[in-house]
Every structure is written in C-alpha cells, then in structure tokens.
C-alpha cells in the first residue's frame, strides 16, 4: 500500500516562538502537498505566518511539531537545493552581479564543474534574467528591479529542486513588477522548477500560480482554502484582464481575504500585541538590543 513519495510535503506543521509571556503559536496544523514543477502562491494578510511557512521549507526555522519532507527526505537545515529569493534581493553589496552569482555557483558546483564551465553557467543564468549586460555592476549601481533579477539568477544558478520566493516583487514599482513576472513565467516554462512564492498581490497570485494557498490570520494561522487556477499557459496579462475565468479566480481570492478573514486591524488588540512581540522575538531583536547598548 506504499504510496509513491510526494515531491514536497508539509505534515501537521506547528511552530511556537518563545516570548516572555510563554510560547506564541504562529502556525498550527499546516498540511500541504506540492507536486513537481508546480507553481504555488501563499497569500494572506501580513503577519499571518506566510514567511514562516517558507522559512520552514527553506530550513531556516524548525517546526515545533510536524515536519517537511522533500522527495522523501526530512528538511532540517538550509541548503542550496531549496534556493531562496529574498524580498529585498539580499545581494552582497560589495560584490558585482557576476560575483554574487559566482559565490553561489562555486558553493554548489565547485567540485563538479570546471572553471570555464562555471563561468559559462553564471553567464547563462544572468542572461536568463536579462542581466548579462550589467554583470560587472555592483548592487548599488543598478535599479531595484535589476537587483531582484540578479537575486533570481543567483537562486536559479543553484539548480534548486524547489525555488522559494519571499515576496520577490513586493518592493518594486508596478511596471517593473509586471516585467519580472513575465520573465519568471518564461523561465518557469523552460526549466519547470517547483516554485513556492509568497505574495500580497492578488493579481500576481492568479497570473502566476497553478494553485493559490490562502492562509487564515494568525496567531495559530493555518491553510484556509486552496484554489486551483486552471488557466492555459502561456498566460498573457492583457488578454486575461478581460477573461471571465480569471476574474472569477480574483473574486474568489478577494472574497477569502476581505470577507472570510477579518483584517488583523479589526482583531482584538491584545492578540495583536502578543503577535507583534513574537515577531520581534524571532526577527532581529538581539542585534537591535546590541545596537542600543552601543548607543547608550
């Protein structure tokens, strides 16, 4: 009766963050199965734990109970086979675009590829995101959209089994975002990577995804509904804008977000307070504390 192992499987994932007022349950009973080559979006109100889910898959956080399996293996530490595209590009500002990708490539293919092969591979990936013309520019010399392109190239160059994208286009203007979304669809068509993307943007989610996972509000957030997007690919944003099916999907997501789930602002004040504290606890508070000490 053994079933074939699923590609990526989250089973009964709970996560608690310690706070001074006892553990704070950020996620409760997350169950999610993702197929190979599938493009899945996570959508939900801010603070609902979308990033936490992504970080568990990335191995940056450990689930308190339950777990994550990738091709039958347990995920318990970060690794390049689950490359992450971070929200604010996270390029090393002292390295050029080429060198940023090179750092990743050396780390993953340092033993298996020759120098010339690595060079070719780096250039190939930069060309894929249309950044081959600015390889030698440092991050502060290129625009926000270009930085994010390099960030995607870096992730792609690791040849990841799953590509994790944490609001990759959130910080970009609408035109640049549309441009990058189109690029991403093209790349995904060619490479057929599995992608998990976090987004706030309903249009982005419907346009790009095969499935949209809608999350309930925290604390103890979980998967609310899952929406299958059966739109033929390649998708064209202009044609879809007038497509009744597309608009139906948008309507579904919007209904979930604004009717079924209250916004965090309308939830009781006390809850919000603990939630915020917990976020501070697990973000960068030790650093901040040290900075304050220094300032004092």
């Amino acid at each position: 009766m053994a079933q074939p192992p699923k590609h990526l499987e989250l089973t009964k994932v709970d996560i608690d963050f310690p706070t001074p007022n006892g553990p704070f349950k950020a996620l409760q009973d997350i169950n999610l199965t993702i197929n190979k080559g599938e493009f899945v979006s996570l959508i939900g109100h801010s603070g609902c734990g979308k990033s936490t889910v992504l970080n568990i898959v990335a191995g940056l956080y450990q689930a308190t109970s339950g777990g994550c399996l990738l091709d039958g293996k347990e995920v318990n530490s970060p690794g390049p086979e689950r490359a992450v595209v971070f929200q604010n590009h996270s390029l090393l500002p002292w390295l050029s675009a080429y060198e940023n990708v090179e750092l990743a490539v050396k780390q993953v293919f340092g033993r298996s590829k020759s120098k010339a092969e690595m060079r070719e591979w780096i250039e190939h990936n930069l060309a894929l995101v249309h950044m081959d013309h600015a390889m030698d520019k440092r991050p502060d010399e290129i625009s926000g959209g270009m930085k994010q392109r390099v960030g995607i190239a870096r992730a792609l160059a690791m040849e990841p089994t799953v590509m994790l994208m944490d609001e990759p286009f959130g910080a970009l203007d609408a035109l640049t975002r549309a441009h990058l979304q189109d690029s991403l669809m093209e790349i995904q068509k060619d490479l057929n990577n599995t992608v998990i993307m976090i987004t706030h943007d309903v249009d982005e989610a419907v346009l790009l995804s095969d499935r949209i996972v809608m999350m309930t509000n925290g604390p103890a957030a979980t998967v609310g509904e899952i929406l299958n997007i059966d739109l033929p690919r390649p998708r064209d944003r202009i044609a879809l804008a007038d497509d009744p099916q597309y608009n139906h999907y948008r309507h579904e997501v919007l209904t979930f977000l604004y009717e079924k789930q209250r916004t965090p602002d309308s939830s009781p004040k006390k809850e919000e307070g603990t939630q915020k504290m917990a976020q501070d606890m697990h973000s960068d508070s030790p650093v901040k504390a040290k900075r304050e000490e220094k300032a004092a």
């Binding site: 530490s77 970060p78 992450v84 971070f86 090393l92 750092l103 780390q107 690791m158 960068d284």
Partner: peptide, 13 residues
C-alpha cells in the same frame, strides 16, 4: 543583516 546571514546559511558557506 539577517538577510545576508540567511543567504550564507542557504548557500551552506
């Protein structure tokens, strides 16, 4: 920055 530390972890430097 936490982001750069995450990059380092993902790359398993």
């Amino acid at each position: 920055s936490k982001d750069l530390q995450n990059v380092s972890q993902v790359l398993r430097l």
